[in-house]
Write a protein that binds this DNA or RNA. Sequence first.
DNA 1: ATATCATGGTTATATTATAACCTTAGAGGG
DNA 2: CCCTCTAAGGTTATAATATAACCATGATAT
Lengths: 150, 150
Amino acid sequence: MPTHCKACENTDSATKTLTDRGVRLTVLRRDVLQELHHAKQPLGAYDLFDNLKSAGKASAPPAVYRVLDFLVEQGLAHKLRSLSAYAACCLGPHAHQAIFLICRSCGTVNECDIAAPKSLTDTAKSTGFRIEDITIEAMGTCRSCTEAPN
Amino acid sequence: MPTHCKACENTDSATKTLTDRGVRLTVLRRDVLQELHHAKQPLGAYDLFDNLKSAGKASAPPAVYRVLDFLVEQGLAHKLRSLSAYAACCLGPHAHQAIFLICRSCGTVNECDIAAPKSLTDTAKSTGFRIEDITIEAMGTCRSCTEAPN
DNA sequence: ATATCATGGTTATATTATAACCTTAGAGGG
DNA sequence: CCCTCTAAGGTTATAATATAACCATGATAT
């Protein structure tokens, strides 16, 4: 493994963010985050669990779920509800509205930093609904899978 | 039960749509749809199953899941991924982009008929991603729960 | 040093969803 | 009207996802 691994750099940078926030960065948390950063696709909680387990790094599912909740809370990972899976945030560790384009065919996910639709925030505002969390996910087929179907 | 039940009317209207489409409307499908229309909140597959089971109308979970898939396909119901639950579509049986405001506190859901954010469709177009299905859900707190917290 | 609290371990189980295979019943052709 | 074909549903078992509840450990702060 070369020194210049983009995924590791991302992990390091996220790690630094946590430290700066005064939040505790444990080995397990870092391991999970690292796995997510190295994955080409979102990983299910049990994918993560199995990997960490094999490496002698995780004990049981609850540990993994706790870490995932933590990472999502900290804005370092996202839960993709359409997949029941998790992905490292690739847009910086600030809270943001992320939108996902998920390819049904190859499973890759494209995270976009676009604002919530105005019509949505307008509706919320006019009905007095306080938005706390937005999920926006588009399932479909990415260009390369369209052009070179399996 | 009075003759003028809004939920029943909705069910009838949806029912008619199916018939017009030449799609088969079975007793089970109608029962599930009716349950969804009468529910104040989205129902989980097992909520539906338990209710139908008690009424001697359903056999086992797969039957319910099959009906739910069917109803979603036909645009008569929606799956709310944030809740792992299902709600009758209250906007007409045409395929449409629905957006949901889900109150964490009282569980009620507000279905809005707003278009997908332009920024999303633009991004998809520019990257060659073919969108097949969009999930947009906002979790939060509705006005009445904000004003009269439990 | 020790009390406190966040973290993780552990066991068990809840909840959501589907695979695989068989039976029934409705639609349509003869 | 009967037969065939197929869509729908029944049935059993199990997979996949997630959490409850309680205990052990180890960092932190005074």
